[in-house]
Design a binder for these strands. Structure first.
Length: 280
DNA sequence: AAGTGGTACAACCGCGAACGG
DNA sequence: GCCGTTCGCGGTTGTACCACT
């Protein structure tokens, strides 16, 4: 089977590079009317000089409502580090545990921040006498306050370090037996969470169950409804979706900075609707 | 102020899986 | 079952920004 022709390869007049706010608006407007999916038809119907793949990526990685950008919390870092240890570079699978983050975002954050951090972590475990990493992290500006936060999870605390290195050892010493199913990962992840619950949030362990329910709920929905978090389960899909797109358009039209408040509203909406599943 | 190196992130590329006729 | 097409994923690249010299 030969490779199908792709608009990406030498397509005449296909625009590449950064998206403009105008292009974003056109794309959002189209998806607002037709829903995400059928990406092939998007450039044809919108007049965008972009290939379908580019449209899909722009939507899923940037325009999709409910995306939380930047400022990964230490708790999120811990989740990513541990799931990466369990799953390897299965960014989409890891992202499924962090509904507000995109796989691309997680992948970038791993490559730019966490990979180095874990490398230092592993060096430290190999050379326990060297406490430079721990000293560095515990004296970081946000770490001091974060340790008092109710939802803070320290990925390098002794118990969590043990759990994480065990997970790494499990993956590294069992070639071919890499964790492959969400169910298996969930069990391991629950074991990890039970072994190393975040301080002051151990009572929220049941949130893990909620997360599973959330995932099952997401899987059961039509693809187009997954994007807005959990609002559909509250029977407010139509109104919320419309409000979401209005906020998004305002955000785009306001040329980023002034529209931050609108985006914050979007984030709040998403956070409130997804608060259960993503809190551990 | 200009040059340089490092960092962060958006976007692209290529491949394989999934799907439908 | 075969084939064409679409979609999703992971790796990589391009570039803007920032800190430092």
């Amino acid at each position: 089977m030969g490779r199908p022709p792709c608009c990406d390869n030498g397509g005449a007049g296909v625009k590449k590079g950064p998206w403009t706010p105008e292009e974003d608006i056109v794309l959002v407007s189209y998806i607002q009317q037709h829903g995400p999916g059928n990406w092939r038809s998007v450039p044809e119907h919108t007049g965008l000089m972009r290939c379908s793949k580019s449209c899909r990526l722009r939507w899923t990685n940037y325009l999709r409502p409910g995306i939380k950008r930047g400022n990964f919390t230490p708790h999120e870092e811990g989740i990513i580090i541990h799931l990466q240890a369990l799953l390897g570079n299965k960014w989409a699978a890891i992202a499924s545990y962090l509904p507000q983050r995109t796989d691309n975002d997680i992948k970038n954050y791993w490559n730019t921040h966490l990979k180095k951090k874990v490398k230092r972590l592993q060096q430290q475990t190999t050379h326990p006498a060297d406490h430079s990493f721990q000293q560095q992290t515990t004296t970081a500006p946000n770490a001091a306050s974060a340790t008092t936060s109710s939802n803070y999870y320290n990925p390098i605390s002794s118990s969590n370090l043990e759990a994480t290195t065990q997970a790494m050892a499990y993956r590294d010493t069992t070639p071919g037996s890499e964790v492959t199913t969400i169910g298996t990962v969930s069990k391991l992840f629950q074991t990890w969470m039970a072994k190393a619950p975040p301080p002051a949030v151990a009572q929220d362990y049941k949130a893990m169950v909620t997360m599973q329910e959330f995932q099952q709920d997401q899987e059961a929905r039509p693809a187009g409804f997954v994007i807005t978090g959990d609002i559909t389960s509250h029977g407010e899909a139509d109104q919320s979706a419309a409000a979401t797109f209005s906020l998004l358009e305002n955000w785009l039209l306001d040329d980023m900075a002034p529209g931050q408040a609108a985006m914050d509203g979007l984030m709040d909406m998403s956070a409130s609707c997804c608060a259960g599943p993503i809190m551990f």
